[in-house]
Write a protein that binds this DNA or RNA. Structure first.
Lengths: 168, 168
DNA sequence: TTGAATGCAAAGGATTTGCAGAGGC
DNA sequence: GCCTCTGCAAATCCTTTGCATTCAA
């Protein structure tokens, strides 16, 4: 789950994530608090997938005026997902958050060797899904496609100096 | 996560899951115990995805001669995955096990309304993935495609008697 | 016989919740 | 001032682990 620069470019969109989130808050009678601001800024400062702990590491520490507690981080991430800013999925039992707003649709390759997450855009996928949905009368809201395997780097490295990784 | 009869037919394969598992055990110097037998039978008695709790509910209770403890259930499910009999993925933070041996490749539609998991075979998917793998020099070992949305039944039901489901 | 496997109890780790005080609007 | 939000501490939920005992080979 090591963050790395995304290959995908940002799409220009009507509203910024900040604007969109504020609309979301207003429409629900929710308040714009310091904590929500801090998180909004930190999350959208970088454009990469992350989990709760990785986010917390980057936040001001306990004692700082901008400290945000762990429960609030979780609560707010849930709100971002609700607001359509982030997408959430799971790898090995932990939640990973990924950008869903102002980003082109994409999925991930997960290297079981180095744990890296690599974004990709699968050309034909949308069509395949549309077809499936039609056949089953299913209304698609979202999808997560996670491909497990070994990335190119690890494959080459292993060929040079073979070492076991998975189990015993 | 309500189990329901699979639409997919069983493929005839060289060895039965039982045979395959015994080979797996032997090749690793592991033993064929009563608990592993009980689990093997219960799991392959039905051909449907399940989680640990659903499996445990169907097992003999504490006190029975065929009782299997929770830790052993988890340990053995891991062995089934290792042996290539089951596939494991996650929905809402809990592990779901699905048949991987003697079954055609398939993925799932997950209805966010009734929580049902519907299997499907996506025709073009394999090709799409092969293409992605090639482009990224990625060696695919497995994939999980989970499509979230609303199943036909729920959609129709809701149109008749609209009721909110997701949040508040 | 002997080392692998099990059950028990307890630990672990991520995430959530109850609640009293703080703070937007 | 009212009602939402936050931080704290503790709880929850699923899953794993340590260890003494049981049991397959």
């Amino acid at each position: 789950m090591d963050p790395e620069p995304s290959e995908l470019k940002r799409l220009s969109t009507a509203a910024s994530p900040e604007q969109r989130f504020h609309e979301y808050l207003q429409s629900r009678g929710m308040r714009s608090t310091r904590q929500r601001q801090v998180l909004l800024e930190q999350v959208f400062a970088e454009h990469d997938h992350f989990d709760a702990d990785q986010l917390i590491e980057k936040l001001p520490r306990r004692g700082s005026a901008d400290y945000v507690s762990r429960p609030t981080v979780y609560r707010t991430l849930g709100e971002f997902v609700d607001a359509g800013l982030l997408k959430k999925f799971e790898i090995d039992g932990r939640s990973v958050y990924d950008f869903d707003y102002g980003y082109p649709d994409h999925d991930h390759l997960h290297c079981q060797n180095c744990d890296r997450l690599i974004e990709f855009q699968a050309d034909g996928l949308e069509q395949v899904l549309r077809h499936v949905a039609e056949r089953h009368g299913f209304r698609i809201k979202a999808h997560t496609l996670l491909v497990e395997g070994m990335c190119d780097e690890c494959f080459r490295a292993r060929r040079r100096t073979p070492r076991r990784v998975d189990r015993i």
